[in-house]
């Protein structure tokens, strides 16, 4: 499997990373080099092997349904690059989104 320039652009758009036109060819080369190297995995016989997403062999613990967190208005907004305040309260602001 090898990526073409269009795929590089599509992947970059999915990841929301701006890639300049002049970077595409270089990235395409680098990514294909890495992918070709990864390709050796196809030699491994994995028929019937259960996939392992993580090494942890324990049961998921659960939290009780108690409000212990969240009243953090100022701390939540303290690092905001664009914060908006109005009569309703305080918000994060972003360029207008059209649905």
């Amino acid at each position: 499997m090898s990526l073409d320039a269009e795929t590089v652009r599509r992947i970059a758009a999915l990841a929301r990373i701006r890639v300049k036109d002049e970077e595409v060819t270089r990235l395409q080369g680098e990514l294909n080099h890495i992918l070709a190297w990864i390709e050796q995995l196809s030699e491994v016989e994995t028929e019937g092997v259960e996939p392992l997403p993580g090494a942890m062999r324990m049961k998921l613990k659960m939290r009780e349904d108690v409000v212990t967190d969240g009243d953090l208005h100022d701390a939540i907004l303290a690092n905001a690059p664009d914060r908006a305040d109005n009569a309703m309260g305080s918000f994060f602001a972003v360029p207008k989104v059209v649905e």
């Binding site: 908006a84 109005n86 602001a93 972003v94 649905e99």
Partner: peptide, 12 residues
């Protein structure tokens, strides 16, 4: 989307 002419406000 109705709080500002060019911005959307986010409430989490």
């Amino acid at each position: 989307h109705d709080q500002h002419p060019t911005k959307s406000y986010i409430d989490l």
